[in-house]
Design a protein around this nucleic acid. Sequence first.
DNA 1: ACCGCCGGGTGCC
DNA 2: ACCGCCGGGTGCC
Length: 953
Amino acid sequence: MSWIRRRSGWTSPAEVDLFIARFESSAESLSQALRVAASSAAAAAETDADTVPFGQLQGTVVGLRYYTGVVNPGEMVALVREPQNPYDRNAVMVANMDGSQVGHIKKDLAAAMAFVMDNNLAKVEGVVPYRNNAFTMPVSLSFWGAEEDKPAFTQRMAQHGFKMNSGGIMSTSNGAQGGRPPAKKPVTIPLSAEELKNAFDNLFDGLMESKEGEKEAAELVSTPLLPHQKQALSWMCACENGSTLPPFWEQRGALYYNTLTCFSAKDRPQRVRGGILADDMGLTLSSKGKTLTTIALILTNFHQGKPLPVQRCEELTEMAPSRPEGSEDSTVVRDAAIGSPRSDSPQTSAETQEVMIVSSDAQKKKTTVLLEDLGFAAALSGSTSSTKPKNKRSAKKAVPKDDLDFAAALSGSTSVTKSKNKRSAKKAVPEDRVLPCISENAEELSARATLIICPLSVLSNWLDQFEQHVRADVQPNVYLYYGPERNRSTSFLASQDVVLTTYNVLAADHANKSPLHAVSWLRVVLDEGHVIRNPNTQMAKAVLHLKAQRRWILSGTPIQNSVKDMWMLLAFLQLKPFDIKEWWNRVIQRPVTQGDRAGLLNLQTLVRCITLRRTKSSTVNGRPLVALPKKTVCVEQVELTPQERAEYELARLEGQSTVSRYVAEGSVMSNYADVLAILMRLRQHCCHPDLLAKIASDLSVATTPAELRQRLVEKLRAVLASGSDEECSVCLESVRLPVITHCAHVYCRPCIAQVVASEREMARCPLCRSDLTISQLVEVPPEELEGEEDGARCERWRTSSKVEALLGNLLRLRSEDRSIKCLVVSQFTRFLSILETPLREQGFSFVRLDGTLSPEEAGSAGGVGLNLTAASHVFLMEPAWNPAAEEQCIDRCHRLGQTRKVFVTKFIVKDSVEENMVKIQRRKQDLVEKAFGSKNTDRKTSRIDDIRALMEL
DNA sequence: ACCGCCGGGTGCC
DNA sequence: ACCGCCGGGTGCC
């Protein structure tokens, strides 16, 4: 008896809400049933690759005449259990793609299916092969499930007298043959895992060759756009104004027909007025290219293709008197009159330095700080003081301030002063009656504001960019919706040109009569949109419930590692019918994960229709979009001295015995922090002996609460410093605002706070079920980081093999060409400190960037956009766990603006944990599962495997 | 006739 | 529903 209630296949609260939304007029029983289905399946299971076909069955849909839903030949239908049906508790209803009920499954078959569905022995997909009469119709049911459930399923169906046809692979390619049953399934060879992975990796590549042309930004934009930015603007405007049908839809007479599901609708399905702008980071001067393009879009494409009507600010106009129209001219005038923009100041300062030493951790966590050069710090931290002295906002910003305070101080103050402008502005610029492709009705025309949602770390970047790229005399109303004093008036928000907020504010508001959700936005923009790829998060749900005419996702990495991640993006863009997970799963995800070629082709088409992505290697009319100098990567093997080797081996043997004990006990995960600490010590040995902190690793030796706290802080710091890209088990993202529990597990503070809040009684640690309270959570006190270092530095300095390897390279390069600048990257800030000594001794000038500030504070300091193109040689002092992090470091140099050939040197200590890390990196890249919907459980086991490999166990 | 057969009424779950 | 099923009317050929 193994029919334990498992998570159900196709409903999660979010998607059912969407499903129901469309349905209000329909029969009560249906929405009821859907609600019940939703509540019984609060946690949605995913369609995983381990789903296998169980077979097919021809059934009958009855009671058609009682319902409105119509079905075309070959159309897919949804099968929904309806346990509350007063006539039959086994009822299984049949619904249309738009959610209209079509009928019921005939009761004898329904009785068999009810059991199967209720116990999640199988998922059912239905296709109506043909229509015969007005009262019943046939339905071809295919059943899918986990291999181990197949016998139970088959047996149960047999008990009811139903025998499955062979469960061969069924193609999803349009079933519109309309033929008689049994429809012949074309026999196709399923894609191999390898083919799939390749196709998937290339999904976002080579999109949008330049058939779009270029579009100039409105004159309001003061920064000239680069050619590929004009191209993006052109594409974005076309997406917003065009009226093309979404992919897979075509007009057939008076109806609109979906060629994949064969559904037809009377109402024209809205083409997403928006899409995904997924330009690669290395493509732009800092990541601000997307920001600039988006600002240009906001200003250039208001209603009916006209620019945003904004009034000039009188005082500023006086200051910078009347100037010729045309963006280039005005830029020149503005620059001359007001001072040059500071976008390039990081390079300018950096150019004076020979060596930049950078903590790669700082980059990964999007933090950047500077120790040595205060001028550089000011440039990076984004103070805009010189640009517009009269502007209140700028004046405030000139004071170097903690970003959070800064945000709080700003919120509410910005546009109040200006909001009065707006009415007159609308009159001042009369709207032309030029007919656009999309006819905009009165309500649509009333929407004005663009809502931009971004991670906190890039909030101030947006504010800066608006100031920097918009003509000084026409600042649009940009309201920062953030901080306790934020203005929650719906009408105020709706009257802004731009409202800027964070995912967290949005999510927090969503729970509690959110004004953001009451506004009808002209446009919603999700910056770093991949952060909401998990649809179960509050942020994701909050985002889905926003009302908007146009929707954009900005992201450098639209898919992180699985097809699954795509769904949230499509749902946000409301790409019919994939915004409902049932259809996404059936039409794309399940076929693709099972190697269906047609499914993959459909996915490719889909992505192509809504995405603009250019990479460094993209071409326009056969010519490279951006010509980048060549990049050479080499690995330099470092041999430890006998002394270092002896110390390393000692640490390795000790670590091995501890970890092998954990492996034997099966307690690796519960001692994860310890394991990471061991690994880190080995990695530190590879770099420099003085990196090793004297950490008492055993929590049990802590006697006093203060001592325990200190131990936890050390552990947390060890985890963070390990560079393991620690993942929060609640949100499954890299931890942000990390805290450690008394049971030594690390989470994002907001995530674990939410867990605690949602627990009625005593909250438990999601990983080990220990009791926990908010007050027990421990975080790293930021100021402590500095003090300790001084202690370490006081000791007598010594060298290490790796230090020597680096110095050898630097000295050689300097003797070859004194103008060469180098970027030295390490995840250990202490290592950077150690490196300072010989660099000074040898007379190298350098700046240092590292992550001593919290992400919020440092976010504005360059963040993801940190641009280090002044350097042409990159030295990665040690391997990263995540190869993408290394790539990111390299891309700081190898991007637009780089004029020299780029050389990358990776130092790897021979016969060490570092070599094992490289092996794992390589193996991971080959691992298909990594790219395709790998299961959560596997992630854990593969981690343990990783640890064993690292420890050579 | 405790049948068969006829033909009208009727029809999801 | 050009079906199946029900139940009343009917009953040699």
